[in-house]
Amino acid sequence: MIAGINIYEILTLTSILFFIGLYGFFTRENLITVLLSIELILNASALNFVLINTYLYPDLLQGAIFTIFIIALAAAETALAIAIIINLYKLIYSVEVKDTETMKY
């Protein structure tokens, strides 16, 4: 618990972070930057886990452990996504979103 800060302020912070990430996900034109936005979203939720754990159930460890899992998953997802991006680059020499729009009507 952070002295002088209540849970509402903290949740406000994480919500803002989450929606910034979402905004980035919607607007970015480059696959790598889209991936960056996803990292923001994941961090916002990880932060939520830890802080809610701290504020509401300080004697439990669930939040911390789930954060660890989230970080592991984020690392894994990033690694795989970057592998795909590199492979895509090998194929079409581009990592722009507009070049990946072939699966449509």
């Binding site: 991936l35 690392a75 990592v95």
Partner: peptide
């Protein structure tokens, strides 16, 4: 993990492409 691993991965991939 993040600052050390993921960000480095990002930088490398950016430099690659």
């Amino acid at each position: 993990v993040y600052a050390g691993g993921v960000i480095v991965l990002f930088i490398f991939s950016v430099l690659l492409v």
